[in-house]
Design a protein around this nucleic acid. Structure first.
Lengths: 110, 110
DNA sequence: GTAATACTTAAGCAAGTACTTAACAATAAG
DNA sequence: CTTATTGTTAAGTACTTGCTTAAGTATTAC
């Protein structure tokens, strides 16, 4: 429950960085090694590894090491957490707007 | 196009903070004034105003001032941007997994 | 008018973030 | 064995963030 909240925190924070979203976009097309991920990403390999750690910790990316190569891929879990939170908020205020009907202009209750 | 990317950046960054998500959760139930938003939020009013600025800049919240009271409410635009990005990624890797069928174990192309 | 309410704005600060370089480890190739 | 490849880890640094307090403005109440 509380650990779930922490996870949402980390997932959204992870998605807030353009480099990390670029990594996820690349991985959406299929698994790939760390160095190959890093090549087009105007920064050091160490920086990319740090981003991957963030992505892996919050369940957005999975990695596996075979020999000296670490292969990275999408982990569906992370995106689901984010998608779920957004969807829940949306359904709540959509339901509220439905109840309101054409009754507009109400500000704060009480 | 580029401005859209900046917006996604800001939206996810905004959602990464638990206080800001709490604000959105509260606003999902209906519009409310700044001071009323702030009351349960163990921090100064000034801090809440700063969070609201972040939320408004990225299209997650809308506000309107009448007299000395600023009323805040959900702006659907921001959440849609985030939801859309997540949905697009998901559909891309789901399509890819479909194409793969039961052909497993492929790592990087080439 | 004076006082209370509801913000607003600015300055400052401790903690966190996103990098860097550099030194290291493990595996594969020649 | 020697060398190149692929990654890992640590330390340092400029910048950003999330607050704070304090002083100010605008509106409403008395």
């Amino acid at each position: 429950m509380s650990s779930q909240k922490v996870k949402i925190d980390r997932v959204f924070h992870a998605l807030g960085d353009p480099t990390r979203r670029a990594i996820i976009e690349k991985l959406s097309q299929g698994p790939i090694s760390v160095s190959r991920l890093a090549t087009p990403l105007d920064m050091s390999l160490a920086a990319v590894v740090q981003h991957l750690q963030v992505l892996e910790e919050c369940g957005l990316v999975r990695t596996e090491k075979l020999g000296r190569v670490r292969t990275c891929g999408i982990d569906p879990a992370g995106l689901s957490v984010a998608e779920k939170w957004i969807g829940e908020r949306r359904s709540i205020w959509e339901r509220r707007l439905d109840r309101l009907g054409d009754l507009l202009g109400e500000s704060a209750e009480k």
